[in-house]
Nucleic acid binder design. Sequence first.
DNA 1: CCGATATGTAAACACTGCTTACAAAAATGC
DNA 2: GCATTTTTGTAAGCAGTGTTTACATATCGG
Lengths: 203, 203
Amino acid sequence: MIQTKPDNQHHHGNLRDAVIAFAVDAARNGTIETLSLRSVSRELGVSSGAVYRHFDDKDALLRQVAKTGFDLLAERFKAAMPFESEAQSQDDAKARFTALGNAYVSLSRDSYGLWRLMFGPHGRASAAPSDERPSTYEWLAKSLAELHRTGLIGTPDADKQFFAWSSLHGLADLNAAPPHGSNTMVRNVDSHCALILAALAIP
Amino acid sequence: MIQTKPDNQHHHGNLRDAVIAFAVDAARNGTIETLSLRSVSRELGVSSGAVYRHFDDKDALLRQVAKTGFDLLAERFKAAMPFESEAQSQDDAKARFTALGNAYVSLSRDSYGLWRLMFGPHGRASAAPSDERPSTYEWLAKSLAELHRTGLIGTPDADKQFFAWSSLHGLADLNAAPPHGSNTMVRNVDSHCALILAALAIP
DNA sequence: CCGATATGTAAACACTGCTTACAAAAATGC
DNA sequence: GCATTTTTGTAAGCAGTGTTTACATATCGG
């Protein structure tokens, strides 16, 4: 649950994090487009001006939300394909790649609003190259390196790497849960990944 | 140029189209996120309430803008690969497919805001299945059928069709012009298309 | 020509992002 | 411990927004 300000206290205690958490929730529930800073502050039991002690403006908050989204994605990547371990076989490499693809798609499916924020202007502004955590691109690069090492695909040059990434990205985007969910088309991610590997196969 | 209301006249003459045209321009210039109905009406020399004679609300206008975006995309598809004609050879089929891919990507590159609107909530709401013009999906289906007929790829079932589409879509999305254009990564669309064909090649 | 209909206006309401002047709590230095 | 500086909050206000309402004016079909 999200931390609100105690009535008898002047200080909230952790307003910045509470605001971010609230906004991230809104993004994941698809209501961030209409979210206002005033409503957030109201909900957290705080005056509307207080928020501006922690964020320059609304865009700054949205950038932070997008960044949190990338953290969430990194967590899922880690669960799907531990960065430290290495694929031991072709099947293993393939399984790890497929797990990565499923993680990517799953985020867009269960948190469409957050996903859209991440890959929209705010996300591009927040995903600065100087990040401590491995970028999504690096996970993919590692997976492709494994696939290459075990002999499943050719040398993964920049073009091929980008092909694999954008192919997954397109699947995730088109497969996303529509806001007022109706005509969703759930696609088989596994077969999609298999087709990517077919494209990158050794000639 | 966009039609404004003559000062001496009470009626604008074509307000609905003028509003749409103005909004489409804004989308293509990347300023639609901050566009207000009031500013539009101001710009067109009309009171703010007048707009509501033509659109239920702002979302209705944005849906219309998205629809116009799909019309624009259809035009480019038509120029890239005439719907009536047929590929006569493998090279021809390949060229037509590649032209299609370039058209798709070009729209996202030169009209990023419009692109985002088209494939966001408003676009999904506006791209009703009951449309007179061929949907983007149908163009792709036709191209794949040609590629199959000339022996370049296997049977294009639903999964493969979706793979090709989403792969192009991901390329277009990731390759889009950032709003305040800096770290654009221009990718070679032709080689991307070639990789798609490799994935769909006859086993 | 005249009434119905389409289209425009002006004013209002509740809401928003954001700023400014001020107050209270917490952290810091001695 | 205590004064002071810094951080964090409040209240009120400004300009701008989406939308509705009551009213005015063109246009069109008969």
